[in-house]
């Protein structure tokens, strides 16, 4: 790897870390501004002023906000996300398993959705403005336009209730084999795929159509390449940067936007965990989950940037 690429990548990573720090400040400040008092929330209506004061002292709530922030940040950096107030459990331990579940679901949804979206995009370009193109776009747009809970319940109704091919509730637990796990997540993964498909497909189509006017595409046609080979070999590599960007945005959505789907299928992932603790006003958990979501989002966007840089031959092979 040559120096401009290394420099650009280092820049992006540094920017990403700065951004993440800024987000952590925002998250911390946001939860401070929220009305209500943690000690009050824990002790409830029956709290005496003495017990409130004691608990505040114990939780360090009497210290100024910036000290509490650095305390919290230091903990995060050493892997200590604090303790959940509602259950008293260590947040890091509970999150670990759920994060893994969420990533597992996102991974399998992505494995299906990304190649499918890109292939459909390529086919749509090949038969552009014809009925194949219109059908692909129509179906993909329709599936995106339906709300995810609607698609979710539709899938449950058809595949779980009527045909009983897949379970309606995606329970996973330690000791399940990969096959069993895959069967359990089939329906939520399908729902997620349908949600993100159209966006990526449309972007692939638009990005490739954009370069189809180029002189090098004509050169390829005049070499006698078939229409599909021209698109795949000569147009696609030059349209890769915008495609990667939209793919990464959708990957991020698969991780941080799964809340509704996880709730529908009662899947023990991050979304479910977040929703549970928001209702319980468990601020440390909300902070931790928010930070992890932000980190995932930023990391994927950095990866998209870096991939776009690396995909550019002018940067990879300077003069």
């Amino acid at each position: 790897m040559s120096s401009p690429v290394v420099k650009l990548v280092a820049q992006r990573v540094a920017l990403g870390i700065l951004l993440l720090l800024a987000v952590s400040v925002l998250i911390f400040a946001g939860t401070q501004i929220l009305p209500g008092d943690v000690a009050q929330a824990i002790l409830g209506q029956s709290a005496t002023p003495e017990s409130l004061a004691n608990l505040r002292e114990q939780l360090g709530l009497n210290q100024p906000a910036y000290i509490r922030y650095f305390h919290w940040l230091g903990g995060v950096l050493t892997g200590d996300l604090g303790t959940a107030m509602s259950s008293g459990q260590d947040i890091a331990t509970s999150i670990k398993e759920r994060l893994w579940n969420t990533l597992f679901l996102a991974f399998w949804a992505a494995i299906v959705a990304i190649p499918l979206a890109i292939t459909l995009g390529l086919i749509a370009v090949r038969y552009r403005n014809g009925w194949v193109d219109k059908m692909i776009s129509g179906v993909a747009l329709a599936s995106t336009s339906f709300p995810e809970f609607f698609i979710g319940y539709l899938l449950v109704f058809y595949f779980a209730v009527q045909h009983q091919w897949f379970p309606a509730i995606s329970t996973v637990y330690a000791g399940m084999s990969l096959g069993e796990r895959l069967q359990a997540i089939a329906l939520p993964a399908a729902a997620l795929t349908l949600v993100v498909l159209a966006h990526m497909m449309r972007m692939t189509r638009a990005a490739i159509l954009n370069v189809m006017q180029s002189a090098y595409v004509e050169t390829a046609e005049l070499k006698g390449l078939s229409a599909f080979a021209v698109i795949r070999k000569h147009a696609f590599p030059n349209a890769i940067a915008p495609i990667i960007n939209v793919v990464m945005l959708n990957l991020a959505y698969l991780v941080v936007g799964v809340v509704v789907v996880e709730v529908i299928f009662v899947y023990p992932g991050m979304g479910q965990y977040l929703v549970d603790h928001v209702t319980k006003r468990d601020v440390p958990v909300v902070q931790a989950v928010g930070l992890i979501f932000a980190a995932v989002y930023i990391a994927l966007n950095i990866i998209a940037d870096i991939a776009a840089i690396v995909a550019n031959p002018r940067l990879r092979h300077p003069k």
């Binding site: 180029s214 090098y216 000569h234 002018r314």
Partner: peptide, 15 residues
């Protein structure tokens, strides 16, 4: 075979 006016545009930048 064909030789285009602007070879700079007629070569694929990715290959």
């Amino acid at each position: 075979c064909y030789v285009a006016q602007s070879a700079a545009a007629a070569f694929n930048p990715a290959h």
